[in-house]
Write a protein that binds this DNA or RNA. Structure first.
Lengths: 211, 211
DNA sequence: TTTTGTGAAGGAATTCACAGCA
DNA sequence: TGCTGTGAATTCCTTCACAAAA
């Protein structure tokens, strides 16, 4: 099956992107798709699509294309999104609350089961989704009790590393970090950063070149 | 000064990242920084830092390092973040509201001056930040009147392309897209995508390899 | 035929290693 | 001496072009 080593990181990122239009197509009843069509929908080259998929096996039929349902299932299996994940989030500001209520997470099997904050005024409040804000000192206990595997950080930047350390100490192996700062983790804990302001600065750079 | 062509995209992204710790250091009164230290703070190699900066000029002093204040100013000038930008946002769900209230934007000179939605129940409501939600049919008018240069999309995915087209028609040249779908734009309009679920799927992939 | 799967070629970005300057 | 700036070497990723298969 997988030549599991040496898969380029960009390939993993694109697999997730391929799944988006495939889901739409499947829902609309389409059965087959060509690498050329999928490539066009995702803004990449057809050869790129084929090479990305070929890292994991032979999913297509030569002369015909890819079976949409089977391909989507394979991608989900590769990305391990064919199961449910339990998450917690630390930092219940505007962004944290919006993330917890965001239906894009549940829809893909990412379920928040605990939310934390260190502000006494927020602790104990119940959110529309039904979760109650817990104090930061219960992070370790609840992560273990609820079997949480992914931690989300939406605190101010100066608290992010401390929170990350707490999560790591509690056994978390994957962190999604929304704080606009780098956090350090041991090799066995993966981090993905979502920094809007970096993206805006990219845009500003491009705009600056024009005007 | 700049050999303005042929700057790698990743370089631009890293410049924004370099500015984060530099701002903190400057505030703390530090004067000089070595490429090695900055690299360590940002999780890249020292040679990478030097090469990135060298694309735009000679900002360092050999044998000494970089003057933090001057370097930060240079980076901000390159990224065109040494000025104010006016933004609008379309899609006032949980995420849209959180983004408008998020102080990370204002702090860096990104000011929302108009917010839009197509839901009649939301139109006319005033947000904590003081802005009133406008109907989507006023997008063109307000973009022109207020001189808005960057558009943010936080609608559901199936509306994203339509909204993007509206923005483009109104003269917008840069879009920050939070909808988990690809949007197409002409060459003269830059897009940056922020897709949390893609990031989560990267994490799931790494977790899946372990457990 | 048609379209996938894939070595080989090409290109882009990073790292190396040292020359150049304070 | 110490650290930046930079061509050369290397690694990584993408594209090409065609053989293989339906």
């Amino acid at each position: 099956m997988a030549k599991s080593s040496k898969i380029p990181d960009p390939t993993i990122e694109r697999l997730a992107q391929y799944s988006r239009p495939l889901e739409v197509l499947l829902k609309n009843g389409a059965l087959l798709i060509l690498s050329e069509k999928l490539a066009e929908l995702c803004g990449v080259s057809p050869a790129q699509v084929r090479k990305d998929l070929a890292y994991f096996g032979e999913f297509g039929i030569r002369g015909v294309g890819y079976d949409i349902r089977a391909l989507l299932q394979e991608i989900k299996h590769i990305l391990a999104t064919d199961r449910e994940w339990t998450l917690c989030i630390v930092g219940m500001g505007n962004l944290g609350r919006a993330l917890v209520e965001n239906e894009n997470f549940q829809r893909r099997g990412y379920n928040f089961v605990a939310v934390f904050d260190s502000d006494p005024k927020k602790i104990g409040k119940t959110l529309p989704c039904g979760l109650t804000i817990e104090p930061a000192n219960k992070i370790r206990e609840l992560i273990r009790k609820l079997g949480i595997t992914i931690g989300v950080i939406s605190t101010p930047p100066f608290e992010a590393q401390r929170v990350a350390n707490l999560l790591i100490d509690s056994g978390i192996k994957a962190i999604l970090n929304f704080a606009p700062t780098r956090i350090r983790t041991p090799d066995n804990c993966a981090v993905e950063n979502v920094d809007f302001t970096v993206k805006l600065e990219n845009l500003a750079y491009h705009l600056g070149k024009i005007s």
